[in-house]
Simulated assay, not measured.
Amino acid sequence: MKKSNPIHQTLTLVKKDLTLELRQQYAFYGVLLYIVSTVFVINLMMGRPDDKVWNALFWVIQLFVAVNAIAKSFMQESRGRLLYFYSLVHPRCFIAAKLIYNVILMTLMSLIALICSIAFLGNPIVNALYFIGMVLLGGISLSLLFTMLAAIAAQANHNAALMAVMGFPLIMPVLMLLANISLSAFVMVYQPGLPKMFLLLGGMDILVIALTMILFPFLWKD
């Protein structure tokens, strides 16, 4: 792998993570169980909420799904395995593979969360295609941010509490932005500020990717 180009190294690492996920399906089913049980409990407690409450609950579920699904991507890597990868691949290839893998995983989990929410909490969505696009975009944004946080926490002796502490002030603007943008899927009225909010969300995603690619090689050396 060391003699191959960066793209091949990255794709090989993504394939490795996907293969491990298929073999160790307990993690996937654990997150799936969390989604179904959470939505079911909300249904028992609240029934079918109105539009704004439904939207808020969905993104809160997405937040905790991202924490549970993405934190394990680094927590499952032992020190010995990280040292082995350090001798084989460039750190940017390693973190790029984690970003791609977590985007794929979070995209799948986001769609499952949407299906479960509609099944148990009703379907108040007016513009379905718009909301599905927002769910996918939101899943990507959450996966990018939590991948960066998980990478930092992994270098601090796999301290999951550190990821939660650092993640709270960073994730709140993203979560509020996603909730505000997705509200347009519940009404037929066009909101004039939507293009700016989309640009802001896209800019934040690009910034997270850039920071991750710049900072991770320094963390990798430690």
Rank of each mutant, 00 (worst) to 15 (best):
G47A: 02
Q62N: 08
G139F: 01
I7A: 14
V135P: 00
L114H: 00
S141P: 08
L11F: 10
P49D: 11
I125L: 06
I206W: 00
C93G: 12
F64C: 07
I100F: 14
F186N: 01
L33E: 09
I115H: 11
L114T: 01
Y130Q: 01
A154L: 12
F186C: 01
V65T: 09
L11G: 03
T12G: 12
Q9N: 15
H90W: 04
M45E: 03
P195D: 01
L145A: 12
L20T: 15
L201P: 00
I70D: 04
N123K: 13
R79Q: 13
S37D: 07
A150D: 00
F85M: 15
Q25V: 12
W54L: 06
K2T: 06
W54C: 07
K72P: 08
L83I: 09
I132P: 05
L149Q: 03
L121M: 06
M166A: 09
L162A: 06
I70R: 09
G167W: 02
A160P: 13
L215I: 15
L178M: 09
L207Q: 05
V89M: 07
L175D: 07
F218S: 09
Y26F: 14
F40T: 04
N159K: 08
C116Y: 06
L114C: 04
M213W: 07
P49G: 03
L129W: 11
L44F: 13
A119Y: 13
I214A: 10
S87V: 05
V174G: 13
I42S: 05
D222G: 05
I214C: 06
V36F: 12
R79M: 13
D222E: 10
M197N: 06
V41R: 06
L33I: 15
L121E: 01
L194M: 12
H90Y: 07
A210L: 08
S110C: 12
N159C: 09
I209P: 01
L149Y: 03
W54D: 02
K3R: 14
K2E: 10
S143E: 03
A56K: 04
L33V: 15
N68C: 09
L20R: 15
A56Q: 04
I112D: 01
T147P: 02
A185H: 01
L194D: 13
F218R: 08
I125W: 02
I209T: 03
P173K: 02
F64A: 06
F146N: 15
V165I: 08
N5V: 12
A160D: 12
P192E: 00
L11D: 08
M197W: 03
V135G: 00
R48E: 13
A128L: 11
Q25E: 06
